[in-house]
Design a protein around this nucleic acid. Structure first.
Length: 314
DNA sequence: TTCCGACAGTGGGGTCGCAAT
DNA sequence: ATTGCGACCCCACTATCGGAA
């Protein structure tokens, strides 16, 4: 069951609110002999997360399926997907064990789908939550955690923003569990961060030529005292109409306008432009909004800032 | 007839593993 | 030893198409 992007946080007693965890979604299936972890796309991820299973089989019910998010903390003590990135694809148990020591993960369980032969998907969220909390209170979930829920969505939204958490998820209390469905009974509200960047190049649509292909993404940079520093590409949000408009607004240049070096794979196929156009970009709201390589995380194009010049950003 | 919602496809950020160079 | 590519994770958003209004 997946959450739909919401427009405004719902209020009232029909909804509860939870922290949106910046990690990896996992389903845990417990049988009498083993615990199996699967990803959203039903790939087996059991090997990658040994510390989530350690000693668990003795504690857990013999027949259980729970839904949750695996998280790990970054250097600032906040859940951060980037910490999990390295071990996500781990197929080597010894490598996974080393990662488990360096960056121990926690399993945040927020739903229960099956218990002792009973399919719980037809129950309401409220009923499933009661079962989940009783399991936790009885110690039947071992080291797995059940994060709290909140009645006041607006409060939680503001609090998560202040604390640097990813956002919130609001859930309709009367809703059933819908496996594999992106449901409107679950609404997500990730914090997003808006900023202005300078365009220094663009790339044509994948698999097409510069002359024929439409503009697919912009290479953007941040104005700093050290010059225009490359921050990555922005493609999401550029429509066919915008694509042609942007090409008209951009002035071709023979060389890169960025002060730092642009990675080889980003240079290939790129058309450089004069650093004159300012655009608005929305990114992931955590921290600086930058990924590990100093690049924009989950960027989306929000419009041209015709009212601004690069000098305005200095 | 028009409108809306679900879904596939395209764009971004990463990592790993493996085969080819 | 290095490089390229696909398979996975995290996504935002657009375009399309069929059914509801």
């Amino acid at each position: 069951m997946l959450a739909t992007a919401g427009t405004h946080v719902p209020q009232g007693e029909d909804w509860v609110h939870e922290v949106k965890w910046d990690g990896i979604r996992l389903l845990a299936e417990v049988s009498s002999s083993r615990v199996r972890l699967t990803t959203r796309n039903e790939n087996d991820a059991t090997i990658a997360w040994p510390e989530l299973l350690e000693g668990q089989l003795e504690q857990l019910p013999r027949d259980l399926v729970v839904d949750g998010e695996v998280i790990a903390l970054n250097e600032r003590g906040l859940p951060d997907f980037r910490v999990l990135g390295e071990r996500m694809h781990s197929r080597d148990p010894r490598k996974a064990a080393r990662h488990a020591v360096a960056h121990p993960a926690t399993f945040m369980v927020f739903d229960v789908v099956r218990l002792d032969g009973a399919d719980l998907t037809g129950l309401s969220w409220t009923e499933r939550r009661a079962i989940l909390e009783r399991l936790a209170a009885d110690g039947a979930l071992g080291r797995w955690q059940v994060p709290p829920t909140y009645d006041d969505g607006a409060m939680l939204h503001a609090a998560t923003l202040a604390q640097g958490l990813e956002g919130i998820v609001s859930k309709r209390t009367a809703s059933k569990y819908e496996p594999g469905v992106r449901s409107k009974a679950w609404l997500k509200f990730p914090h997003r961060f808006r900023a202005s960047y300078v365009v220094g190049g663009w790339r044509p649509q994948e698999g097409t030529t510069v002359s024929q292909g439409r503009l697919a993404s912009l290479l953007v940079g941040e104005v700093t005292p050290d010059g225009l520093l490359y921050r990555g590409r922005v493609g999401s949000g550029i429509t066919a109409r915008l694509s042609t408009l942007l090409r008209e607004l951009l002035t071709p240049s023979a060389s890169s306008p960025f002060a730092d070096e642009v990675p080889r794979e980003d240079v290939k196929g790129t058309q450089w432009t004069e650093p004159l156009l300012v655009v608005e970009v929305e990114t992931h709201g955590l921290g600086t909004g930058l990924a590990s390589g100093g690049r924009l995380r989950q960027p989306s194009f929000q419009g041209v800032r015709a009212d601004l010049t690069p000098a305005d950003l200095a």
